[in-house]
Design a protein around this nucleic acid. Structure first.
Lengths: 346, 346
DNA sequence: TTGTACGCGTTATCAT
DNA sequence: ATGATAACGCGTACAA
């Protein structure tokens, strides 16, 4: 194993002082060209890696990170995010990281903008956010970009060029759902049901639908129908009941967001347990029906891990100057009644 | 948010010097009782947290970690472990961690013991190991325990009281396999196939079998047969062919280890693609048959993550004095042809 | 019993 | 243009 070189070592080897080495490393000028070249060569030769610990020792400023997140009280989907955030904070408790969280109402764009203003007032060094509303988020992100504030977004992607993103490949997750459905039904009609939460951008669910259909398009000799049903959140039950009545041949339903439990509730009360059901997310109501056998599979989007990674990327960039990936896709977890438990733990 | 106190701050508050504070913190004696009490009270009041980073700055000893692992050349299952190890090392590259790896032949207990001796000679501070052979591993672990060397084991558990363990709940993973099988077949016989690698302890596969059976035992009105077949590694093909011939009603096969591709190969060549197949582990041959549709599901035991976590736990204990969990169970990942790709990346 | 001074690696500042 | 030095937070040997 090689020795670990320090600036002191380099200085000795080059026959100059530590200060000169530092100037070269940080391109701070005031170094003679020949010396600079010599030192740079030396640094490259021995693959010098600065000691990040010592670097942060001096750099004792308090980092401020702002978080703009949906209020879990309005939608249980977001509850686990705070676990992920706590984990990241505790992992980096050795550093002085301050997190200011601003929770907006996920049904209200105005709330989003208001809390964005508050966040901005808190003068954050970096920002973690869920850019739930396309138009507003885009504006806000451009604002941050102009201010040169690094942002990590998760859950849904706005624009690859404007901020780092952590999430899932939604098209592919639609394909995963399709493969699961194909595994568990032999014949009969399938339905894709969008239960529109109104506030969430439809792009989300459309991507999943596209992926779902593409799987069956790729199959040879597949002729069964794929029905489609769009339901507004407020009228879920009636519309669903009508839809089921209209399509007695239905054998499989794919719900493109976390609201599968609405469908499950109805299937159970109408004794239509033979209809297979695939949905998203480990909300406690979904998990309940999964364990009961009404829901067959759930796809786990892991918002907890998304929030954790986002914050971790930001912190590692602050304290270690690590690069933040422009896009980080999480694996698509398939959940059934038997493997669900360990995914629920905090 | 509170200010982050340093030893210097405490000293000032207590009206004593840094040295005294340090003596109190580390119970190093030579402190007047009244002063000690006062300082302790102060420390508790402000919830003093030492800066772990500065602590390691001076502590420039080189940590030696020994790894006793199966040779990936003998069984491809172990190939990805080195990725996990590299990740952990790079994550902690700021510290001076030396890893000495000793690869043993996973078919040979003698090789295990020999490399254990070599490992011991290298005078490691801590040890990461795969305790593949029960009897030998137990002896070895007791030896390390007597020497007071911290050990992290992964893959298979020997004894909860003797070493930390990272792995999966094998019984539960058998239940996951059963649930999957139950989802994709309606009728006909099922078979549990143990392809004995001879060297691996049978406990592994037995636990999975128990879990698999327990799932169907819990089902009401389930009467179909669950066949069982044990095959020695060297005679896989012939035995398998006979077994298939003897049981024409077979509709589902559960292979309890990473050797499902042997069965897949045969099913493909004998045109028995209608038989559903569930197995373990993302070996390239398994993934090939998964994508081809011959294997329906694989359960991912994530040896890469197991190795990563084991090493991470050891290092964090060395440099941050974090506790090592006695047992850490990974979630049981369900893999099909559509979600496999992101699980393969390094 | 207690205080002081130094070292760890990096970096900013000041003097040359 | 370059070298010397102090400072960050902690641990500790040594002096008082």
């Amino acid at each position: 194993m090689m020795k670990k070189y320090t600036i002191k070592d380099i200085a000795q080897l080059a026959g100059v002082s530590k200060g000169t080495i530092d100037r070269v490393i940080h391109n701070r000028g005031n170094v003679a060209k020949d010396v600079e070249d010599k030192v740079k060569q030396l640094l490259a030769d021995i693959d010098y890696q600065p000691n990040l610990i010592a670097r942060n020792l001096k750099n004792n400023r308090i980092y401020q990170i702002g978080a703009l997140l949906p209020d879990p009280k309005k939608d249980a989907y977001w509850e686990v995010c705070s676990d992920g955030i706590q984990q990241a904070l505790s992992e980096f408790s050795a550093f002085d990281i301050r997190l200011n969280t601003f929770l907006f109402d996920p049904t209200d764009t105005k709330s989003f903008m208001e809390h964005h203003e508050l966040l901005l007032d808190s003068a954050p060094d970096m920002i973690l956010m869920v850019p739930l509303f396309y138009k507003e988020a885009k504006t806000v992100l451009e604002h941050y970009k102009a201010l040169n504030i690094q942002v990590c977004t998760f859950n849904n992607q706005i624009d690859a060029s404007i901020a780092s993103f952590i999430g899932q490949d939604l098209y592919q997750s639609g394909r995963v759902a399709a493969k699961l459905m194909h595994s568990i039904i032999d014949k009969g009609d399938m339905a894709i049901i969008h239960i529109d939460e109104k506030y969430k951008n439809a792009v989300h669910m459309q991507e999943k639908e596209k992926g779902f259909k593409s799987y069956f398009d790729d199959l040879d000799g597949f002729t069964d129908d794929i029905l489609k049903c769009k339901i507004r959140y407020t009228e879920t039950e009636d519309k669903l009941r009508d839809f089921l009545k209209d399509h007695p041949n239905l054998t499989g339903i794919f719900v493109t967001n976390s609201k599968a439990f609405h469908v499950a509730r109805l299937l159970e009360s109408e004794n239509k347990g033979h209809i297979k059901l695939v949905g998203y997310d480990l909300l406690s109501e979904n998990v309940h029906y999964l364990k009961d056998g009404v829901i067959d599979f759930l796809i786990h989007q892991n918002p907890r891990q998304q929030a954790y990674l986002g914050l971790k990327f930001l912190i590692e960039n602050l304290v270690f100057e690590k690069d933040i990936p422009g896009k980080h896709l999480l694996p698509i977890d398939i959940i059934n009644s038997e493997n669900v438990t360990p995914f629920l733990r905090a």
